[in-house]
């Protein structure tokens, strides 16, 4: 399957990547090969077959809506952020 440059840029955007020109070319070629490979699924007739999304053997797992003691407190979690200030994670301007 042929993947256009626009489609690669669209997927890059969906994936939140800023790809270099070189990557656009090389990833484009790789993606075409991979998509050609997975397209062999078309050979199989799956009419009337139910999809399997998970093999957990369970549906909903409920628990009480209560706050349990956590291993990591607020300070420990904030300490992981590249920038934090006054108990908040700092990010560059949005707009």
């Amino acid at each position: 399957m042929k993947i256009s440059r626009e489609e690669i840029l669209h997927l890059s955007n969906l994936s939140n990547f800023s790809l270099s020109e070189e990557e656009i070319t090389s990833l484009g070629a790789d993606l075409e090969n991979i998509i050609t490979y997975i397209s062999q699924l078309d050979e199989l007739d799956t009419t009337g077959v139910e999809p399997t999304y998970q093999v957990f053997e369970m549906e909903n797992v409920w628990r009480e809506d209560e706050i349990l003691p956590q291993e990591a407190d607020r300070e420990a979690l904030l300490a992981l952020a590249p920038e934090a200030l006054d108990y908040q994670i700092k990010v560059p301007k949005v707009l």
Binding site: I8, L11, S12, L14, S15, N16, F17, S18, L19, E23, S26, L27, D30, L31, I34, I35, V91, P92, K93, V94, L95
Partner: peptide, 28 residues
């Protein structure tokens, strides 16, 4: 310098080529 480029540039530098291939296939 802005939020959108933090995501894009961080993920561009932070992932290996195979990570990028698989993420893009997944989004495809």
């Amino acid at each position: 310098s802005d939020l959108a480029s933090v995501y894009a540039k961080t993920r561009h530098d932070g992932f290996m080529p195979e990570n990028k291939r698989r993420i893009m296939i997944g989004n495809f």
